[in-house]
């Protein structure tokens, strides 16, 4: 098992009180597997990913229960120094907007070789070679020339490729991809997803793909967790979740999407109401208030 998350709860101190953003999330990631986390904004999918990476803001966040095991080792209470060592070597992350993750005043080559020298202890020349090989691997044309270019000279899709190349420097066992294609056009999105799928097969890397787009999840994931109001409401293999969804929220989500491959002219079914305020405790199923069909004990596939 690459990653085991057990009953993880994450909260944030705010002036209104403690927001409980993640409420007892449990899931595993196996070797070479792509696991999707899907849900709407504010459901806690990104917070879960940040918690595992140790990237939560220190001043106002807290993990109040549960543990995270990476390669069998508990990393829940590791210090910042120890987490920095893990990031990059055992796990890496790519983000939605590659422009904010790259340094605008350094060339791509400088940024990549810096990482390689620091983490692998290679000399400058070898690091340069390695960076070049990685850029070629992720499909950057004219990689030698592009090493000298600055981030703003790259297009969105190319920047995301650079981010992926940087994440691959130490061949991490686990890659977190937080909405990696949300800012990209569909044709570029298809290219990036294909690249991720290839890399996972080639390097036996596990990927956790966080996305709000059910189409993206369906395209490359093996298993998927559907999150709602800080909890996983349904999880299973993609085939099961998409063809035979059990939870009313999953069903609602899938039904509210129009499809390109089907003819439909009826009104789109909608999910009524709003997600609950995460400031307060939720008794029972968090989706119950939005579901007229919900009766006690009838529809709750989630643990609570």
């Amino acid at each position: 098992m690459i990653l085991e998350i057990n009953n993880l709860s994450v909260g944030f101190h705010t002036y209104r009180g403690d927001v409980k953003a993640v409420r007892g999330v449990t899931f595993n990631v196996d070797e070479g597997e792509i696991v999707g986390i899907v849900g709407e904004s504010g459901c806690g999918k990104s917070v879960t990913a940040h918690a595992v990476m140790g990237l939560l803001p220190e001043e106002n966040s807290f993990i109040n229960q549960g543990n995270i095991k990476l390669l069998g080792e508990d990393i829940t209470n590791k210090s910042n120094m120890e987490m920095t060592k893990l990031r990059g070597t055992s796990m890496a992350m790519i983000f939605q907007d590659p422009m904010t993750s790259l340094n605008p005043v350094l060339t791509i080559g400088q940024q990549m070789t810096e990482g390689i020298i620091k983490s692998k202890g290679l000399n400058k020349k070898d690091a340069h070679e390695e960076a070049l090989a990685l850029l070629k691997r992720v499909g950057i044309p004219k990689a030698e020339e592009r090493m000298k270019a600055y981030p703003h000279e790259f297009s969105g899709g190319m920047r995301q490729r650079v981010m992926i190349a940087m994440a691959l420097i130490c061949r991490p066992k686990l890659l977190f991809a937080d909405e990696p294609t949300t800012a990209l056009d569909v044709t570029i999105q298809a290219q990036i997803l294909e690249l991720l799928d290839e890399l996972r097969r080639e390097m036996k890397m596990s990927i956790v793909l966080v996305s709000h787009d059910l189409g993206v999840i369906a395209r490359i994931c093996d298993r998927v967790n559907v999150m709602y109001a800080g909890r996983i409401v349904e999880s299973g293999p993609v085939g099961e979740i998409f063809h035979n969804p059990q939870h009313p929220y999953t069903r609602g989500l899938l039904n509210s999407l129009p499809r390109v491959d089907k003819v439909d002219d009826t009104e789109l079914p909608v999910i009524e109401g709003h997600p609950p305020d995460l400031l307060y405790d939720i008794k029972g199923c968090s989706f119950a208030p939005q579901m007229w069909r919900c009766h006690e004990g009838l529809c709750c596939l989630s643990s609570k």
């Binding site: 056009d185 044709t187 999105q189 298809a190 369906a218 395209r219």
Partner: peptide
């Protein structure tokens, strides 16, 4: 363009390498 749209159905994993290059 149509081939690149991800469809929310895992059985339909079309040939996703249909378009090369960028704008």
């Amino acid at each position: 363009l149509l081939a690149a749209i991800p469809v929310p159905d895992p059985d339909i994993r079309q040939d996703i390498s249909s378009i090369k290059g960028e704008i």
